[in-house]
Design a protein around this nucleic acid. Structure first.
Lengths: 253, 253
DNA sequence: CGTGTGGTTGAACAATGTCAAGCTCTGTGG
DNA sequence: CCACAGAGCTTGACATTGTTCAACCACACG
């Protein structure tokens, strides 16, 4: 179930935007009725993706963009010989496929870490969005600039932080994101393997394992059966020397 | 002259947008008369920055955004203890300060590598741009998404390429960018020090030096008095296993 | 002439990668 | 119910890569 349409299904049930469960989260901004109206007809359906399935593939031309309604995924690129770099994680409220929509072709792939539900938007309606809904156009730009900001921080991390700092940064980062996206219902468990951590941080699997062990010895986190439990989010953030995610309401579509 | 307003001056001469020298480059898209009109009054002046001066500082709230008219600069972040990571290089045609304009505060700094001339735009007029000029709003989003794409590739580079591959990638990347921006008038010299290369690639200065030496031994490049000369751009790109920059007209403002 | 910036080099050392093996689950088919 | 296979985690030994330290050199500039 690694590629193609395997593991991807249209859902029977379609969540109306008016009752979007994300909108009630404190971290997301509200829509005006006019905006809500537009988004509601911008949305053309819903998809459900199995764990392990590929949502978007590098090189693909997609006629859609998506907002994640539930579940976790990750965005990555491959080198010709198979080396993998994970760029970022995708959580509820995140928009994906914008790059492909604007520039014709995806330059990265996205794979589901858990079962993922997506809202589907028609690329062809983007034009109307820009022409008639300046505030949403602004939001799209904001979203792209925000992703850029996240990538800046990751770059700083991989380029200049030590393995221990990097790992602390990553766990702290994902944990904060999950918290703001209202995922996990309080349980602080992240559905990733050590291979994902390694491929995000530019480390080998073995070294990642040993580094995680050091964090565990300091009681900052614990590796569970399959996934990672955060024990001391502040301690991790401090060890990384990271300022934390920006707060305040953020737009989403 | 590291910070503040030192090294920054308003220029006497102001290039009219109608005669913008960048517009004649094949890589940039054309404006409609209406767009040109707007941009022309969106531009509020010009600044000249000396080599080594800081154009934008992390944490700063700026009322402006800028397009580079001429010169080279670089965008970077610092860790509390002084470790530096260069995120990207800024060349003519590049827009800077968008993040700060959208999100209130810069989260990175920008320093001039050569004398830089900037077109200055008022942040306060951004709103009107989104409301009245959908095509330019689209361009802004495109620009942000494009920068994201570049960062993805850098991340892949730092995370998963070897020191030799990374270095080849960087030189090839900057060289292509310079070529498309019409910089250097055919001379293939990049105005950077080995320290810049090191801080971009997440390597130490010494190791960077030894890696560059290996590239020089293969006749791919040569380090000059102060700066780097590209001898075999294709060879560098191939060694890096990189696909090269996307072609085709790009928007700019 | 100094002085500073940027480049070069070798040696010792630390960080990280690779290899190889084994362990613990979990799911599956007999 | 058991045997087995696969995925993911763990560990130690060893190889490689990259860092740090400490020089020294070359050139530009005042």
């Amino acid at each position: 179930m690694a590629s193609g349409t395997v593991g991807i299904q249209q859902t029977r049930w379609r969540t109306p935007c008016q009752q979007c469960p994300l909108r009630s989260l404190p971290d997301f901004r509200d829509f005006t009725p006019k905006e809500l109206d537009f988004v509601s007809q911008f949305k053309s359906g819903e998809l459900s993706i199995e764990r392990g399935a590929t949502i978007l593939v590098e090189g693909m031309h997609s006629a859609h963009l998506f907002t994640v309604l539930s579940g976790w995924a990750f965005r990555y690129k491959l080198l010709p010989d198979g080396r993998r770099q994970i760029m970022n994680y995708v959580l509820p409220g995140d928009l994906i496929g914008l790059q492909g929509s604007l520039m014709g072709e995806m330059d990265h792939s996205i794979e589901a870490l858990t079962t993922v539900t997506l809202c589907v938007f028609e690329r062809s309606k983007l034009e109307r969005l820009f022409e008639r809904h300046a505030s949403l156009a602004y939001d799209l730009t904001w979203i792209a600039a925000h992703e850029e900001r996240i990538l800046d921080e990751h770059l700083l991390s991989i380029g200049r932080r030590t393995a221990l700092e990097r790992t602390a940064y990553l766990l702290s980062f994902i944990h904060q994101r999950a918290h703001l996206a209202g995922v996990n219902g309080g349980r602080r468990v992240l559905p990733i393997t050590q291979q994902h951590v390694a491929d995000t941080l530019g480390l080998s699997l073995v070294h990642t394992n040993k580094t995680l062990r050091k964090l565990a010895e300091r009681n900052l986190m614990r590796w569970q059966d399959k996934g990672c439990e955060i024990l001391d989010a502040d301690g991790l953030q401090m060890l990384a020397g990271w300022e934390g995610l920006q707060r305040g309401p953020r737009p989403f579509i």
